[in-house]
């Protein structure tokens, strides 16, 4: 089976990879590029653990082929912190204890960051709907929602 050569950007860096046409972007990120922060929960678009951004839009990387990434700008959880310096969302997730096992957390961070870029002042309802495709089996969601709302408030205050 012939492999496809793809050039894309991941978290701002140019990447090149060869992928099998059946491989998803999730497979490529984890297995070809070693970016294992993006998790696989279901593989069918239901859980959001694999959330990444593609050209600024939030998607499930399990529902996109690696081959489709040609020329795209991909954002993963690895690109959220600035070196050693955590993103305000990451700080708040720790502060609010908005995670337990952590499997859902990378996807939720990517999704929440994308929300705040679209809408710096979301209501609780807007946060809940935006994150409705990110399942968490541990926290009961409340702490996650509070961490996101608190981050939004803090970023607004800082600006």
């Amino acid at each position: 089976m012939s492999r496809i050569h793809v050039t894309a950007r991941v978290n701002g860096d140019k990447v090149e990879f060869l992928c099998d046409p059946r491989e998803t972007l999730l497979d490529v990120l984890r297995d070809n590029l070693g970016l294992t922060g993006t998790k696989e929960g279901c593989g069918t678009g239901d859980c959001g653990a694999c959330s990444v951004t593609v050209d600024g839009r939030l998607i499930c990387s399990c529902l996109m082929l690696g081959a489709e990434a040609e020329g795209k700008e991909i954002g993963t959880v690895e690109g959220i912190a600035n070196g050693e310096e955590l993103h305000p969302l990451q700080v708040k997730f720790i502060e609010h204890a908005a995670l337990q096992c952590g499997i859902c957390t990378p996807g939720i961070l990517v999704a929440a960051k994308n929300l705040l870029e679209h809408n710096p002042a979301p209501s609780e309802t807007e946060v809940r709907y935006w994150l409705a495709g990110n399942l968490c089996r541990c926290t009961g969601y409340d702490k996650i929602i509070r961490a996101v709302l608190d981050t939004a408030a803090e970023i607004r205050a800082a600006n």
Binding site: G45, G48, S51, V54, R57, L58, I59, C60, L63, M64, A111, N114, L115, Y129, W130, L131, A132, G133, N134
Partner: peptide
């Protein structure tokens, strides 16, 4: 249809 993620696609 689906979540924010699904709506993007």
């Amino acid at each position: 249809v689906g979540s924010t993620q699904i709506q993007s696609r």
